[in-house]
Design a protein around this nucleic acid. Structure first.
Length: 414
DNA sequence: TCTGGGGTCCTAGGACCC
DNA sequence: TCTGGGGTCCTAGGACCC
């Protein structure tokens, strides 16, 4: 196989940088990046976690993902701003557009991370290109990035995580020993807290120590996930930079309620509001799903879930809701609930359902769903709602984006 | 008034079948 | 009567990512 040159472009403190840029462009006097600041959710709605932090905030020991409450303890005069996802999506899109000028192989990995295959441009020095890209993003878009360069996506990603911000790093095979092996093992992609603990318990603390284990040994111990991280520790990874998204495998929406829900009636309303969003998104995909799953988190922070495979795939809000309700009733132990989640998976084309005369098939409901979707797309999600939500205090449709930009979050998949 | 939301993949155990 | 074994499907839970 030809030797590849892969770039990983990672926006420094993405949400915070983008928020800072937006505010400066709209007349703000201070740059959020220069003061201890965070982008964080609304504590009164129990969404109080740190989504992104400035470098001065980092110096106070503030971590992303920790509670805002605890962040404020660490830094009492912390500036806290709410997130604006549409803004960030726009900033992210501008960056993608700029990168597409350098290679046809550009893959959005998440809102703030992009892979780019630069192997096909052998005339230009890749380091010069990386610096040029970094400077153009800073000059034209106003934020800084780290660029990691390596022979595959894993090493490029590891490299972009080295010293920040506003840096270019390389990590080729002959640099692994010096640059990657001394790092703590949990800095390796896919080694989370659980795996770190298991490895530490057997005396493995650095990526190098993991790399030097026997392949058969790690496989017999930690099975496939163990083999994957062992290969990563040795720089072995060969997934392509994809310029077309993989098919979506599941769609789900969840919400942490602003108060604990302790009764069946209200629980059902949250399930309905989530089913409305999930249904709309599957229909938008032009697919039908066969497996419906409900997950709950109770006041003790314990999560559990139930799922059911239907005899026929569906895209109907009512079928999703009825199934979700049944699952909830079967599993709920009566304790207060703080988070509800509804999701659908195992997709099939929706054409079969449309053409067949299946018993369960309800043409009227399908037409109703589609009509409601159209009205909501045109006039907003709350333009048409189920009457049970009136005066209830529960939002009639709950969940994130149905945007055209419904790119898959490829998370643990490179 | 402390702890988000949206994903993918893997494993283990039980049911069921031959 | 003294205990097969393999394969597939389904479900629950867990691990990880951004």
């Amino acid at each position: 196989m030809k030797k590849r040159i892969i770039f990983h472009i990672d926006v420094n403190s993405a949400y915070l940088s983008w928020e800072a840029v937006y505010r400066l462009q709209h007349g703000a006097a201070i740059d959020l990046r220069d003061i201890p600041s965070i982008v964080g959710g609304d504590e009164s709605k129990r969404h109080g976690i740190v989504l992104a932090r400035s470098i001065p905030a980092k110096k106070f020991g503030i971590l992303t993902g920790e509670t805002i409450y605890s962040a404020r303890q660490k830094c009492p005069n912390l500036t806290i701003v709410p997130p604006n996802y549409e803004r960030y999506m726009k900033a992210s899109n501008s960056m993608i557009k700029l990168l597409e000028g350098y290679s046809p192989y550009v893959q959005r990995y998440s809102i703030d991370e992009v892979f780019m295959d630069y192997s096909y441009n052998s005339e230009k020095n890749f380091l010069d290109t990386a610096y040029e890209i970094k400077e153009r993003i800073r000059g034209e878009l106003g934020f800084t990035v780290n660029i990691g360069i390596g022979p595959n996506k894993l090493l490029a990603k590891m490299a972009s995580d080295f010293k920040k911000p506003n840096r270019v790093h390389t990590l080729f095979h002959d640099e692994i020993e010096n640059k990657m092996w001394p790092l703590p093992v949990d800095e390796l992609f896919m080694v989370g807290p659980r795996t770190k603990a298991k490895l530490n318990k057997r005396g493995i603390f650095t990526i190098g120590e993991l790399a030097k284990l026997d392949r058969e040994y790690i496989y017999s111990w930690l099975k496939k996930p163990g083999l994957v991280v062992w290969e990563y520790a040795n720089g072995i990874e060969n997934s392509p930079v994809r310029n077309t998204p993989l098919p979506i495998k599941s769609i789900g929406n969840s919400t942490t309620t602003s108060y604990d829900v302790d009764n069946r009636r209200e629980s059902h309303m949250f399930l309905l509001a989530l089913s409305e969003m999930v249904g709309m998104r599957v229909r938008n995909l032009e697919q039908c799903g066969r497996v419906i799953s409900v997950s709950l988190k109770n006041d003790k922070f314990y999560s559990y879930s139930h799922q059911r495979k239907l005899s026929i795939a569906t895209d109907s809000t009512n079928v999703i809701y009825r199934t979700a309700k049944k699952l909830f009733d079967e599993m709920w132990q009566g304790e207060p609930i703080r988070r509800f989640s509804v999701s659908i998976s195992e997709f099939y084309s929706n054409e079969f359902q449309q053409l067949s005369l299946l018993e369960d098939y309800n043409e009227k409901e399908e037409i109703l769903d589609k009509t409601i979707d159209k009205i909501r797309n045109k006039y907003g999600y709350n333009s048409i709602i189920r009457s049970c939500f009136l005066h209830s205090g529960v939002r009639p449709i709950i969940g994130g984006v149905v945007a055209e930009e419904d790119y898959p979050m490829m998370s643990s998949l490179l």
